[in-house]
Design a protein around this nucleic acid. Sequence first.
DNA 1: ATATGATTCCATCAAATGATGGGGTTTTTG
DNA 2: CAAAAACCCCATCATTTGATGGAATCATAT
Lengths: 220, 220
Amino acid sequence: MDASAFKENSPMASRLEKALQNPDSTKARILNAARRLFGANGYSDTTTRMIAAEVGIDVSTLHYHWGEKQDLYEGVLAAINDEILLKFREVERRCTGVDLGRRLEIAIDIMCDFLFTHPEVANLILFGYFRKADRDVVLDVNVAQYISSIAIAMGLADRPDRVSVHAKARILAVWNAVLNFISGETFFRPMMDIDRPRYREVVKATLKFILVPAFTAEES
Amino acid sequence: MDASAFKENSPMASRLEKALQNPDSTKARILNAARRLFGANGYSDTTTRMIAAEVGIDVSTLHYHWGEKQDLYEGVLAAINDEILLKFREVERRCTGVDLGRRLEIAIDIMCDFLFTHPEVANLILFGYFRKADRDVVLDVNVAQYISSIAIAMGLADRPDRVSVHAKARILAVWNAVLNFISGETFFRPMMDIDRPRYREVVKATLKFILVPAFTAEES
DNA sequence: ATATGATTCCATCAAATGATGGGGTTTTTG
DNA sequence: CAAAAACCCCATCATTTGATGGAATCATAT
């Protein structure tokens, strides 16, 4: 319930505590196991005992390091939030001085490669869509920030507060399509009857196909 | 755990038991409450007691009518499965003798109107994407069937088994975009800062915008 | 070495949850 | 009407789950 730990050092969200910087530390190992399990099963279907067992520790040790279950979940979301924003900066870097059509393709490629390697990230973002509005703490990934980042990286807006409603809607459509294709792979791939590499190809091609006209048509 | 009840009378999936045809019957009222709550909270975050309380009955009465919790969940999915396939037939009817571009728009309009009025349907379908593969019974909505239905209704294929991989991928992209826009309304609308009617407009416009070129371009 | 603090596990609790048995009450059937 | 079936609720159980207190162990600094 206590989210103060995250508020306090949040001027730079990516600043991690010392214990988390060492990936072998118990606290970090708990975080990684939690990330995988929360991503695979969702919040309610992941028990603290499952996470502890995965790490090979007792439940009380988990609570010692992270407090309540929700605090651990917030820690997971904070971590993937940082990773995603880092990826967006990479997109921006690789996009400078490139024309719009190519920028879109670069963005698709980078984000798809990232998410296909970390499918739990896609799951965790999508899980957030369903959470009830009565949440008292910030349990969601900051999607609004992503949308603005994409809009600016794509050159569709100069300031985060000046993205048109239609631009937002189109970015959301594509962004969600990416997440769905990754989260739903075990669901969709059998009905397309193709293997993993081919699936990745088709997903990228499909996204580019619907993305490019959706934005290049509005360059005015 | 016992899914035989659904196997037995499944030549016509939409055939419902007598008790369910009367919407005032206790069994039907349980089904409707379950549908709303499962759709709002997901499977694990909805307890049988919540459903019973919503109907105003005891938990044991719920179990008397539906058996295990999973059986009730299957009942919900079977019900919405029937409804969706019914909607698709309506789309087909309204699409005969119309050109492709218009067909696509009709499909978008019908499905959006339906799902905006029954957002729990969108939720329940999306929840299915996350379920683990170790499910021993069919707990999912038959998305593969939807995709084929759409492909045929749109005239993109003559037989359900002859839909190209790319066509399937594009239909999935749009279909998922629809579901996400509806399920994520409380999530997306604030960041677009518009009211509900406007949101519906924007969603439909966006979907049509990305849908039409994605398919009309491949008419060859 | 020893004291101090950090870390870990064992035992345990309270609440929530899925599920059932049994005894009433109502409805249907003959 | 009487028997049978269907229906419904109360009380209760076993399990799971989040969480904590306290003892034991390990690390570190003096």
